[in-house]
């Protein structure tokens, strides 16, 4: 196998996402505060922590959906600009979300248009980019349905006729069809049963490798984090309590809360 075709993280380039002292609080210790980290191209960063620890708030701030109270987020864009996410116009920020980023919601119903067919869902981001050829849109739809292990023959079916796991895969296809550089995932396997979860995780891992995606992954499930992410941030009560390589954190947790988290995982 020719190893040179595999995309590798290029550490010489500036970080894709540079998060500096970001805070967004709804109340004392509710939300996220004093968050600092860098995300490099091709890296999968997991954010773990209990419910209410501020993971999803942080994700919304990173994805440009919610302005932080303090601090800034710098994004290194495809045309080699470094953008301060909350200094640029809303138009530019939404364009980024549409063109260079992807957002995968926990509930596929939040990320899909339930009223239109699977093919239209996959084609929507392409159409937003200016793709105006029906035949090509349809071919892309069928191709991506195959890639996420859905039957391409069901391209004209409405998302509500799909099972939960299939809807989640459809949402992933819809997001990845434009080949985003950076994908935000909020509990992508939440609410699915264990066997479906395992297959979905396997698929996400394959796609992330194939496409060389950079991912910010929010999850409360350490098994998901272990399988997908290269690095981990552990959050508790709005702060990052521990950060490092995934295996290092899960095999040798230093902070008391991380130790509790790791020891409370049930192993059959």
């Amino acid at each position: 196998m020719n190893r040179s075709v595999l995309p590798r993280p290029d550490l010489e380039r500036p970080a894709l996402l540079d998060v500096h002292n970001v805070s967004r609080l709804y109340g004392p210790d509710k939300g996220c505060q004093e968050i600092n980290f860098r995300l490099h191209a091709g890296e999968v960063l997991g954010i773990v922590g209990e419910s209410g620890s501020g993971k999803s708030t942080l994700l919304r701030v990173l994805a440009g959906l919610e302005a932080p109270d303090a601090g800034h987020v710098a994004y290194h864009s495809a045309n080699d600009d470094t953008l301060d996410l909350y200094a640029i116009s809303e138009a530019r920020r939404r364009a980024l979300l549409r063109l260079e980023w992807g957002l995968i919601h926990q509930n596929p119903r939040d990320g899909l248009r339930m009223g239109v067919s699977a093919g239209a869902n996959i084609g929507e981001r392409l159409m937003a980019l200016g793709q105006r050829h029906y035949g090509q849109l349809r071919a892309a739809g069928q191709d991506w349905m195959g890639q996420v292990e859905l039957d391409p023959g069901r391209i004209d079916d409405a998302p509500r006729t799909f099972s939960g796991g299939m809807q989640q895969r459809l949402q992933i296809a819809r997001t990845l069809v434009t080949r985003p550089r950076l994908v935000f995932m909020d509990e992508p396997t939440g609410g699915l049963d264990v066997s479906v979860q395992a297959r979905l995780l396997d698929m996400i891992r394959t796609l992330v490798r194939q496409l060389g995606l950079s991912v910010v992954l929010v999850t409360h499930d350490l098994a998901v984090a272990r399988l997908l992410s290269h690095r981990l941030l552990v959050m508790r009560r709005s702060r990052v309590v521990e950060a490092g390589l995934t295996d290092q954190i899960l095999d040798d947790p230093q902070h008391a809360y991380t130790q509790l988290l790791v020891s409370s995982v049930l192993t059959p």
Binding site: R94, R113, E124, R125, M127, A128
Partner: peptide, 19 residues
Amino acid sequence: HALEEYGVMHVKLYEDIAR
């Protein structure tokens, strides 16, 4: 409208052709 995000208009036309 303000940001000229009109991709969804073609979603409707796509649905028509698909159906």
